[in-house]
């Protein structure tokens, strides 16, 4: 009769293992929780940053300031050149007066009082609306190169490009991604090491028991399963704690983003897919670590 151990037996034994070293189990679970929380945080920050960058890319515009000396002909040439660029959605040319009017609206009324009309900046400008679906950093780089090319054109005084800020964001996200990846690997490895050590101690403290089980005819699987379940349970506990931490962080960060930066972005640190990943990832990390420990130290 080749039947495996009953679930009831396995759970009773695993619970006994946990009871045997409650502090070590707790430390393992907390380590997994911290690792998963940070990994989750990095993943969601990067995901949301990409989302924000994408949104910003949707409403990208370019202001091409034309020199005072430029003739109508020069402006028309620039306009033609701009229109040739793939992805240019619309052009709007403002005269000096129109630009000044726009600036006046932006300035504080008190500031304008008694101010000479000519003191308000105004310059002929071509507003370029770009239909760039900025999915990647490459798109932005291409735009920047193009912008520089326009700047080189005679009668173009200056080009103001919002994407310069986007470039910075892209760079930050890229650095964050690298750091996040390295940190996640380190954190997960240390969490696994904790589980590995806890299980190893459990195996050592039960050497006699393991030998007896083996002598009365227990299969290696029967002896190992409670240790594996213990590891998986530590991982599950870690995942649950990570969910709570991510949930709290989410609330805290959301109010920060809404109240301080006035951004009404829709995002979540704990979307359903994240919950699923944690529920699979936590036990998987614990199971993998205990499997390594049992494989190495539990000889039946």
């Amino acid at each position: 009769m080749k039947r495996g151990p009953r679930i009831g037996y396995v759970l009773r034994q695993s619970a006994q293992l946990v009871r045997g070293s409650p502090w070590l189990t707790a430390v393992s679970a907390v380590t997994i929780a911290l690792a998963l929380t940070l990994v989750g945080l990095f993943a969601m920050v990067l995901f949301n940053a990409n989302h924000v960058l994408h949104d910003l890319g949707q409403s990208l515009s370019l202001s091409v300031y034309v020199k005072d000396t430029a003739t109508q002909q020069d402006i028309a040439t620039i306009e033609t050149r701009l229109k040739q660029r793939h992805g240019v959605k619309a052009l709007k040319t403002l005269t000096r007066e129109q630009d000044r009017e726009r600036n006046r609206k932006l300035l504080d009324k008190d500031l304008l009082e008694g101010l000479d009309e000519s003191a308000i900046p105004g310059q002929p400008v071509i507003e370029v609306e770009i239909d760039a679906d900025l999915a990647s950093r490459g798109d932005v780089e291409e735009l920047v190169t193009w912008t520089r090319a326009i700047q080189g054109v005679t009668s173009v005084e200056d080009v103001e490009f919002g994407a310069e800020k986007l470039r910075l964001l892209f760079a930050i996200v890229e650095i964050a991604r690298t750091i996040g990846f390295v940190l996640s690997v380190v954190l997960l490895a240390s969490a696994m090491f904790f589980v590995f050590s806890t299980i190893r101690l459990g195996v050592f403290s039960r050497r006699d028991e393991i030998e007896i089980l083996s002598l009365v005819g227990a299969t290696p699987g029967f002896v190992r399963v409670p240790f594996l379940v213990e590891g998986a349970l530590q991982g599950l506990a870690g995942a649950l704690v990570a969910m709570v931490l991510l949930g709290l962080l989410h609330l805290e960060l959301r109010s920060l983003v809404r109240d301080v930066y006035m951004l009404n972005a829709t995002w979540s640190l704990l979307p359903p897919s994240m919950v699923l990943w944690l529920l699979i990832g936590g036990p998987a990390v614990g199971l993998a670590a205990s499997a390594m420990s049992v494989g190495r130290y539990l000889k039946v």
Binding site: R3, G4, P5, R6, I212, L213, V216, G217, A218
Partner: peptide, 11 residues
């Protein structure tokens, strides 16, 4: 009970 539990008998 160990000797029986390893055989997968019901509780």
């Amino acid at each position: 009970a160990i000797a029986l539990e390893i055989m997968g008998l019901t509780r």
